[in-house]
Design a protein around this nucleic acid. Structure first.
Length: 428
DNA sequence: TCTGGGGTCCTAGGACCC
DNA sequence: TCTGGGGTCCTAGGACCC
């Protein structure tokens, strides 16, 4: 049996834990730059606030209904997420963290799963303050469907079997995990509208319409596991990009933003102990602003040799940016991807690299000085915060973030209750 | 005025090999 | 008239997920 534990309205619930006066009120959490709604409390859903709607489109509703609006506080949500996982681990021989608010748990051979799930659910709630729902099924796909049903039950726990006709008969195909809008449209065109119809369709037909991907989903609906538990793998790619608070036209400002994103991406990569073999840089104008000239382009290339050296990568990124930058556009976004990630130490060294030395003990040492520099940067950042040491291209933090137009808008940010001493709540 | 960010997997097609 | 068969690797693009 597989359980899917999913936090209810996760970001909105996190805000509530430390601000109980929000309980019972409509709460929404916004995407970066305070752009779109990405989480809603039940009360906000009841008011008709749609997932992904831009804030400016619901401004009136926010005012008339007194909707509580928050910027994304990823420091808080990330920390709450790991607390929840640590509670789940007490119950779970095997757990796969699927996203910031969802985990799969393997419970093969455990009797009375429903009872255990209820227990687990109330402990998570008691210890972290976050409400979760638990879906149970023989496959991940069925556990997902069960979770869907669990969300609507007061008990918050539901089991879906391959024989649970009632769970499948009225479930539209696009609500199935792995079936998005495109595949759903193709299925509807051959008269398959519900999960039950898909389950009972022939493998050949499913294969023809949706390829091997949908065939796996089809198998899973019939109780055959196709998606196993993944071991946490180091990532293959790391991407860092942001939309700007305002439009940006100057190359220097794009360079500043890009080098800041490169720093973030390289920090993540180094934390995973990986090196990148290539990078890609992309820039976009504002696709929503039809009135202005549009331009989007990207440039990619291999690094001279696989590396996790900040200065090398920042330099390459900047070179790519210059290749694709065009004068006369109002840019909205820039980003960098680190590609072809592999564990450090396994990479092939360049044949004639002069910077490679062999030490007495036989270990190969690459660019010793640069390595020390990177370690020093990390050390400073870990003690004094990630903005304490920056590349020369990036302006130092200033009192008014809008002096550099690419900075994020985060006007409704709650405190980092659990990760910053200054933000700890005071109890009288 | 204002519309997010970060991933994975699969497939098709091109370039190349013998 | 008629032009093979089997591979690998890479990239771009599409589809999906949260």
């Amino acid at each position: 049996m597989i359980a899917l534990v999913d936090c209810n309205n996760f970001y909105a619930s996190c805000e509530r834990v430390f601000c109980p006066s929000l309980v019972g009120k409509p709460v929404v959490v916004l995407s970066n730059n305070d752009g779109c709604v990405v989480a809603r409390s039940n009360e906000a859903k009841a008011l008709g606030v749609a997932m992904g709607v831009p804030l400016f489109k619901i401004k009136e509703l926010v005012a008339t209904e007194n909707v509580q609006v928050f910027s994304s506080n990823y420091e808080l949500y990330g920390d709450m997420s790991s607390r929840i996982v640590s509670v789940l681990r007490r119950y779970a021989p095997e757990i796969e963290i699927y996203s910031i608010d969802e985990s799969f748990i393997k419970f093969d051979g455990v009797p009375d799963m429903v009872n255990l799930s209820s227990q687990m659910r109330s402990i998570v709630s008691q210890w972290t303050g976050i409400p979760v729902s638990v879906g149970l099924g023989d496959t991940k796909t069925l556990a997902k469907i069960a979770n869907h049903k669990a969300k609507k039950k007061p008990s918050g726990v539901h089991r879906t079997g391959t024989d649970s006709i009632v769970d499948l008969v009225d479930l539209p195909v696009d609500k199935i995990w792995g079936i998005g809008s495109k595949l759903a449209r193709r299925l509807r065109s051959v008269g398959i509208l519900t999960a039950l119809q898909l389950k009972n369709a022939s493998s050949a037909l499913v294969r023809k319409i949706g390829g091997v991907v949908m065939e796996r989903t089809h198998q899973e609906l019939n109780g055959f596991r196709c998606f196993d538990f993944d071991q946490p793998q180091p990532r293959q790619n790391i991407c860092c990009s942001r939309s700007f608070g305002r439009r940006v036209e100057k190359l220097e400002q794009l360079e500043a933003a890009l080098s800041s994103y490169v720093s973030t991406a390289v920090r993540k990569m180094r934390a995973e102990g990986s090196v990148a073999s290539g990078i890609q840089v992309f820039i976009n104008t504002d696709r929503f602003n039809k009135g202005t000239l549009q331009y989007h382009n990207s440039a990619a290339g291999k690094l001279p040799c696989p590396s996790n050296d900040l200065l090398t990568i920042a330099h390459e990124a900047n070179r790519h940016l210059k290749r694709i930058f065009r004068e006369g556009y109002a840019y909205k976004k820039v980003g960098v991807l680190l590609l072809g990630l592999a564990p450090e130490g396994l990479q092939q060294l360049p044949l004639f690299a002069s910077s490679v030395r062999r030490k007495k003990n036989g270990r190969i040492e690459i660019k010793v000085k640069r390595q020390r520099l990177n370690e020093a940067i990390e050390e400073i950042a870990s003690r004094l915060g990630k903005d304490a040491v920056t590349l020369g291209l990036m302006p130092r933090k200033k009192s008014n973030p809008y002096e550099s137009p690419w900075h994020l808008r985060r006007e409704r940010l709650s405190p980092q209750y659990t990760t910053r001493w200054e933000d700890l709540l005071l109890v009288n």
